[in-house]
């Protein structure tokens, strides 16, 4: 090999070596190597945002992310981070940091910026690359009226029945209510009529008169008379006359100042004599007592001062 050829070979080797050198030195980090993503793109205040930062870098470099702009004066707050790296098929390495951010405030907010720090070995020191993502996230306040715009509520469901039926239905219900009211009033009046002690006593006394005409024994008649009068007193004046002896009834009527008490007690005393002293009265005695009883019941039918007072009290209430 001559000297000319040797010099050409040396130049070629130097040139080849110089061309091969950049392949062994680390490459500088570019903004295109850094990607960010965030999910979801809109969320309510207080919800969590999944913020992912990916950096592709030379496998000989070490990469970290710092100065994520969160905390005070920002709508973001870090609630958790984790980062890891993996080798890519092209020989480079992917650094990934998953951050969970709590978001606050309302409106559209740009995703938080950060700084990627790349270490190129001990000789060349660190390289810092500040990233400001262009993407943004929409934060919805719970009290924000724009919520309806961002998340529209479903349209109102139309009624399953024709709306024009509403009025007739209301009219029918009103009519039923009115009819019910009158039925209740009628039943109350009927019940009052049937429970009326004066009416019941008169009816029973009339029945007793008929039985006397058909041969009812006067003694049995007096017993019936006593029972009818006791039942009448119990219902008319609301006290347990059926469980009271004649003297107790007399005391009760006196305490209530009932005007018919004297004649009434005389009748009950006569009935007691028939019932307990085995007296045998005549049929005329019994008829006379029956007439007196009818008169007493008729007299008691008129409202007493106490009845009127109770009625007034009831009306006032």
């Amino acid at each position: 090999m001559n000297a000319g050829r040797k010099s050409i070979l040396a130049v070629w080797l130097l040139a080849s070596a110089s061309a091969a050198l950049p392949q062994f030195a680390s490459a500088a980090l570019r903004p295109g190597d850094v990607r960010v993503s965030a999910e979801p793109d809109s969320l309510f205040a207080g919800e969590r945002l999944h913020y992912v930062i990916t950096v592709h870098h030379d496998r000989r470099d070490s990469v970290s992310v710092e100065s994520l702009k969160t905390g005070q004066d920002t709508p973001f707050e870090i609630t958790g981070t984790k980062s890891f790296s993996k080798k890519l098929q092209d020989g480079r390495t992917e650094f990934r940091m998953d951050a969970e951010l709590a978001v606050f405030g309302s409106g559209q907010h740009q995703l938080p910026g950060f700084t990627v720090i790349s270490g190129h070995g001990s000789a060349q020191g660190e390289e810092r690359l500040a990233i400001t993502p262009a993407a943004s996230v929409t934060v919805l306040s719970m009290s924000d009226s724009t919520v309806t715009e961002l998340r529209p509520i479903s349209p109102p469901v139309s009624a399953p029945w024709p709306t024009w039926l509403l009025l007739p239905a209301l009219l029918v219900l009103t009519a039923l209510g009115v009819v019910g009211y009158f039925i209740k009033k009628f039943v109350t009046t009927l019940r009052r009529y049937l429970d009326d002690p004066v009416r019941a006593a008169r009816q029973k006394l009339r029945a007793m008169r008929r039985q006397l005409s058909k041969g009812l024994q006067p003694a049995a008649g007096y017993e019936s008379l006593s029972n009818i009068l006791r039942e009448f007193l119990q219902k008319r004046y609301q006290f347990g006359a059926r469980e009271m002896v004649t003297q107790e009834i007399a005391d009760e009527l006196a305490a209530r100042n009932i005007n018919i008490r004297e004649e009434l007690i005389k009748l009950l005393d006569q009935a007691d004599l028939v019932k307990f002293a085995d007296r045998r009265p005549g049929i005329e005695d019994c008829r006379r007592s029956l007439r007196i009883a009818e008169l007493l019941v008729a007299t008691a039918a008129a409202p007493t001062a106490q009845d009127e007072a109770e009625q007034v009290t009831g009306e006032l209430e």
């Binding site: 002896v245 004649t246 107790e248 307990f276 002293a277 085995d278």
Partner: peptide, 11 residues
């Protein structure tokens, strides 16, 4: 002073 008893006596 009665020759017969009544429920009043019982009570």
């Amino acid at each position: 002073r009665r020759a017969y008893a009544t429920p009043e006596d019982v009570k």
